[in-house]
Design a protein around this nucleic acid. Sequence first.
DNA 1: ATTCATGCAAATCGTTTGCAACCCA
DNA 2: TGGGTTGCAAACGATTTGCATGAAT
Lengths: 145, 145
Amino acid sequence: MIQKDELSQLLREKGYKITKQRKAVLDIVMEHDGEHLSSQEIYELVKQRCPDVGVATVYRTLPVLEELGYVYAVDLEDGCTRYELQKKEQIHRHHHLLCESCGKVTEVEDDLLDEIEDKVFSKYGFTIKDHKVKFYGVCKDCAFR
Amino acid sequence: MIQKDELSQLLREKGYKITKQRKAVLDIVMEHDGEHLSSQEIYELVKQRCPDVGVATVYRTLPVLEELGYVYAVDLEDGCTRYELQKKEQIHRHHHLLCESCGKVTEVEDDLLDEIEDKVFSKYGFTIKDHKVKFYGVCKDCAFR
DNA sequence: ATTCATGCAAATCGTTTGCAACCCA
DNA sequence: TGGGTTGCAAACGATTTGCATGAAT
């Protein structure tokens, strides 16, 4: 598939070697678009398909995929690192809504941070490349209980 | 001091007992206003003053102080939970700028999220109570290297 | 042939927990 | 008194590391 060739190329560009383990990890993450799998969960899914893959390899692969722009880490406050597929079209990652009542996590595609990012640059001289935004509150379903 | 009496009252209201350990932890955090001490660092500072305080107590106290509104946790991506003094006047906590070059952390007092918070409510029915915002990029000093 | 990547197991490290002793209310 | 709190040490769990083997270039 096209994706695979792209992965090979990106790996090559950064001086990384092309291995079946790296392809396997990317496959799993791509097949779970829209989810926030933890490193452990990714490991277990990879393991189902390639039983001879070790945990360490998965833990070493994820940051590589992040560097290549395939995934990014999210912290959903449950004590582990989770990863999401990075959509190509998006420059910035999206925001997350964390419901304090039911724990549900909702994605917000709207960015809307341009104003504050401009202000941050003019006031602090800080050039923003990316952001992580989490909102805490109560989701629609829980509001009526 | 006034603060101490206030702590006692808040603890009492929540059904917690007033102990010298809890006062000691709050003292340390208040004396380090503007810093982002890790739980471990807070423990060490408390320990200097009260050598008989255990780690577990500090780890159990910090979430209590957070519940009372004295502090809040920040994740500066270095593998540990850090705490900041919550300023009374502020409704929301402030944002953080993380320089990818020198690692410096800068605070941004401006909130400027009203627009997006309104939009999130009207679009998702999600009632926002608080937020955590981190910006990644390059600070002024590093921009010229 | 080199160099980097892997699997395994042991090691790390921040944080949590069980429990008997303790102390505040 | 009685139940929340504490200190200690052991337990935990996610992640990392050392190292010999194995695969990619």
